[in-house]
Design a protein around this nucleic acid. Structure first.
Lengths: 106, 106
DNA sequence: CATTTAGTTAACTATTTGGTTGACTTTATA
DNA sequence: TATAAAGTCAACCAAATAGTTAACTAAATG
């Protein structure tokens, strides 16, 4: 699946965020990706598959190697969701500030 | 706690995202907040406490009523994290596009 | 004062999550 | 061809999560 909840859930894990930060640099093989983590390659592979299910990573097979590549689209969607709400709150806070200022001067 | 992982983890749940969307409208009591959900008030209260732990909601007691208010700061931090990465990827994609265009015309 | 309302707390359950290991498949290489 | 490397798959485990119900506290109200 690929909805926004999946994106947030995928990001809500330290290891997976670190994977994303690593993949932001460049495409890399699963074993190289797994190397710095203090867990088995299988575990990292599972995390990568969670990211893949969320549409955040694309896995491509070349020979016996699996390369992982970042897919930023869901992150953009997540960012847009957050942005919408923040604009709204900014307005609310501005209004609140305006209200409080007015009340003070009366 | 209040780090970015907590924020993403808190958002990675349908119910909690719905709670946030509701609280974006206005402050509201726990029982009113729980009313539309197909689960017990206790369950909703737990979700609200998860959001509270993540710094996304502030609970204030007035009489016997608990009012829940949205705290947008962690969302802003989450948005900024996403934004940074997206700017970076946009550049990368632009570079890729430039590269492909050059290659084609040669 | 008796009752209702708002909510917490504790105990419990089922499912999901994050991890392990060992056996296996497939591809590359000495 | 034998072996090593890259990775999957299945079975398992412990802890966390999302929910329940029942008993309770505290505040408001008839």
């Amino acid at each position: 699946m690929n909805n926004i909840q999946h994106t947030f859930a995928a990001l809500g894990d330290q290891t997976r965020m670190a994977i994303i930060e690593r993949l932001a640099l460049n495409e890399i093989s699963l074993s190289e990706l797994a190397e710095p983590f203090a867990m088995s390659q299988t575990a990292v592979s599972k995390h990568v598959h969670v990211l893949s299910e969320a549409g955040l990573v694309e896995i491509s097979k070349r020979g016996r190697t699996r390369y992982c590549r970042l897919k930023p689209e869901p992150l953009r969607a997540a960012e847009e969701w957050l942005e919408t709400y923040q604009q709204f709150w900014s307005e609310r806070f501005e209004n609140l500030a305006t209200f409080l200022t007015k009340e003070k001067s009366e």
